[in-house]
Amino acid sequence: MRTCISACLLMIVSNVALAAPVKVVATLPSLAALAAEVGGPLVQVQALSSPRQDPHYVDARPSLVLLLNRADVLVMNGIELEAGWLPPLLLQARNPKIAPGSLGLFDASRFVHLQQVPQGPVSRREGDIHPGGNPHFLLDPRAAASIAEGLARRLAEVDAIHAETYRNSASELAKRLRSLAQEEAARFSRLPAPQRRVCVYHASLVYLLDWLSLEQVATLEPRPGIAPDPQHVAAVLQTMRATGTRVLAQEEFYPQSTSKTLVQLAKARLAVLPGGARFGEGQRYGDHARALAAALYAAVTQAVP
């Protein structure tokens, strides 16, 4: 009788354990979208920030502590993009599962070919630069594909029973993202060189421009994180005129007043790009990447109003 009860209990417990989805928390909405697609119904994903927010400046709201406290896996961008808000949250979260060095902490930057890694000494005279390299790789679906594959390997370790499912869905996703990347890159490569020149607000589009073989002519910020000043804007205007650059591109969370004036003077277009996948509205990463490319393509090909 007793064995029967304990066997029943064991079955219930193990069923519950099998049925409970892996709780994944992602710092950024694009990472959340990737995790949701890799994990499918096996994971329950929540994002700590909104795509409309600058990922450098997210408020460390205590409600985020709660999400981190209850997480099985934390997916973060890494290389200091979240340095201004994630460390105190992690300390307050009291969750050894997602501590550095644990299986539950997934740092996406480890799976990406990083760009703009400073090779010599660095100084804040150069602005608010990231000593580990440019952290804005999530705008490139090729990087996202590698991250999805890496995340699947990690989820396979955390939830070994479903290892196969994670790997399959990630390789499917990666294949789709890579062919999407190739398709879009091919479309952009057919454009004549002058149309492929763009000016950007913050040096956050390097991976995106690299993917679509666009050329960055200037940044509106004189140094990363330093607000544009009139002198620098004048210099950018001159550069845009001299090079025939017709597009100023920036994510939606950067200020637009100076940009609007500049595009008017330069007879150029302002391409405001989504800051990340609209994860809250159920958007998939692939659709986000397509939207990015479409917004840029429309800007570089359409005539100036």
């Binding site: 480890r110 070919h113 580990g132």
Partner: peptide, 13 residues
């Protein structure tokens, strides 16, 4: 051929 970035191996500072 796979469409992966043909950049050099990951660089770490």
């Amino acid at each position: 051929s796979l469409g992966v970035a043909a950049s050099p191996a990951p660089v770490t500072a």
